[in-house]
Amino acid sequence: MTESAPVLRHPMSKYIREDRQPWIYCPGCSIGIVTNMVARAIDKLGLDFNKVVVVSGIGCSGRSSGYFKTGTYHTTHGRAIAFAEGVKIANPDLEVIVISGDGDIAAIGGNHLIHACRRNIDITVICINNFNYGMTGGQFGPTTEHERYSQTSPRPIGNIEHPFNLVKLAASSGSTFVARWTAVQARRATRSIERAIKKKGFSFVEIIGACPTAYGRMNRLGDGLKMHEHLLEVAEIKNGLPPHEAELEYESKIICGEFVDIEKPEYTAVLRAAHTKFKESI
């Protein structure tokens, strides 16, 4: 008689809707890693999980909210930040986290990103950047490097456009906390996500991820394992570097670290103070 080995539960499974398993993600994708990072950050901070709200937009990363076992909302394409702002302003006691992709947050939702940075509402945005629109099969997007191939920037020309550097974009738009890590720097990235959540102000964390199914295949970057190994090789940690120097060149250099951590009056705090003032004046 052999006894079957006990099934071990993942330590973060208490935050996850296990009845929705398996994930929809492809083998080698980074989104599962980032989901784990967010769960661990929430766990480390000891947050009341009922008071955590996870919001996402459309795309592969947009599916992430649905796996968290709390109040979660899957918006239309690009609108996760706008929804999150409404939530946070209407109930500032909630911890509002947006997880979405580069296409969702920087293309169709780009205007909402820069204005939320400027407005300084205390939400945390985690952008998983895999350099393409993965869900629709791998088209170029706002972060695809010049001359890279995709389903809509095929050989021999490649991408005619130039990418956004999201760290520079968020920092120059006024975000009070800005960091970038790759999906393989899980512990450092998780610590930054913790700081981003704790920060009383708008926080932006970019996680560079791998999309072996689409972007990797079209640019011959290897499978998921190879792509993640590459991320580790080219990641350079430069905490505190001025954000405008936080370069990102997929082939050779991805500058990682925390680049912005500043103080600015936060929107909901200012609004609450105004309410108190009105009450006292009556």
Binding site: Y73, T75, R79, A82, F83, E85, G86, V87, H112, H115
Partner: peptide, 13 residues
Amino acid sequence: IASITSVIGASWT
């Protein structure tokens, strides 16, 4: 677009 989407968010609180 942001206006009404934020209204949806507020309503869910």
